[in-house]
């Protein structure tokens, strides 16, 4: 218990230091205009989106009892991207609250589709969930391409933007469009975190101990969409953070959801903030897309987890 608190305080201090450090590094002189108009919204948006990704992954892994769940892998992020583009193609501005709502509706639709497909009497199957996520992602990407190529709005963003995610054009309105939804997701997660611990005993045991299993799972999945979809609407898809961070936190803090969720929020924010600061300074004045950086690190870890999960479950063939 005391160890958890020390680790979480340590993470919070690291995040604060990373944030302060990010204010002072960059190509341009650290004038108030640069910091306030360009760096500050970018740093804050990276923190919000990173925290959302971490919490979303932790919620999904807990609610679906699936160690490989990540909003990018199971198709929620692709659904959010599609929802955003559909709304934007009607003339709504990118990075607005309305576009974020479109992203959330798309994310919820993808979440509903993927859980309905992979549900079985024995719960949500690990492999079916991943395969359903692959199909949903491919479907959403295809429809997204159709919308983008047929839209006569010149301002509609390129497909690559959504698949490689970037904070390059972070603005204060973008922060305002993301923050309320991510915070709502955090509040729901905080309320149900104790019940998620009971859920992790298994549906039957949880039901026997008086838990409304379906209600808790439903709220967890909604919160998992809220914490990630508005971010997708503003900065595009960033994969694997939702997978990596909760696993790393679980290794240190154990499986209890209260410290896990807080740790995943801090860890996700820290990782994205460092990643984005690298993206804008490493090869400056050129900008690296952060989604590419996270995928390069995240995909090998996913493969390792895949092998371990298969071994634990005695093989899937």
């Amino acid at each position: 218990m005391a160890r958890s608190i020390f680790v979480l305080i340590g993470l919070a201090i690291a995040l604060a230091l990373a944030g302060i450090g990010a204010v002072y590094v960059g190509v341009a002189d650290t004038t108030s205009v640069i910091v306030w108009d360009i760096r500050a919204p970018r740093i804050i948006l990276a923190t919000i989106v990173g925290a959302g990704l971490g919490v979303s992954g932790a919620l999904l892994q807990g609610a679906l009892r699936n160690p490989l769940a990540d909003p990018g892998i199971i198709g929620v992020s692709a659904g959010a991207a599609l929802g955003t583009v559909v709304i934007v193609s009607t003339g709504v501005a990118y990075g607005s609250v309305v576009a974020a709502i479109g992203g959330i509706i798309g994310g919820l639709a993808a979440m509903a589709a993927v859980t309905v497909v992979s549900r079985s009497p024995r719960g949500v199957e690990v492999v079916t969930l991943i395969l359903a996520g692959v199909a949903i992602t491919a479907f959403a990407a295809a429809v997204l391409s159709i919308v983008l190529t047929t839209s006569d709005l010149a301002g509609v963003r390129s497909t690559t933007f959504f698949t490689t995610g970037s904070f390059a054009l972070a603005t204060w309105p973008g922060v305002a469009a993301t923050l309320p939804f991510v915070l709502t997701g955090f509040i729901i997660a905080a309320i149900i975190s104790g019940r998620l611990d009971v859920l992790s005993l298994g549906d039957r045991a949880a039901f026997a101990s008086g838990l409304n299993v379906n209600s808790v799972r439903w709220w967890a999945l909604v919160a998992a969409v809220l914490t990630v979809a508005a971010g997708v609407a503003v900065v595009g898809i960033i994969v694997f953070i939702g997978l990596l961070v909760p696993h790393a936190i679980r290794l240190v803090l154990g499986p209890r959801h209260a410290p896990l969720l807080i740790g995943s929020a801090l860890g996700g924010a820290l990782l994205i903030l460092i990643g984005d600061t690298a993206a804008r300074t490493l090869v400056a004045p050129v900008e690296l897309p952060i989604g590419v950086v996270t995928a390069v690190i995240g995909a090998p870890v996913f493969l390792l987890l895949l092998r371990r999960t298969r071994a634990q479950q005695g093989g899937w063939a």
Binding site: V27, V33, I38, R280
Partner: peptide
Amino acid sequence: SEGLDPFVPLTAEALVEL
């Protein structure tokens, strides 16, 4: 005049600096 490639995805800060 900065010797950049023909089309560079530029960071916002770099443009301010130029």
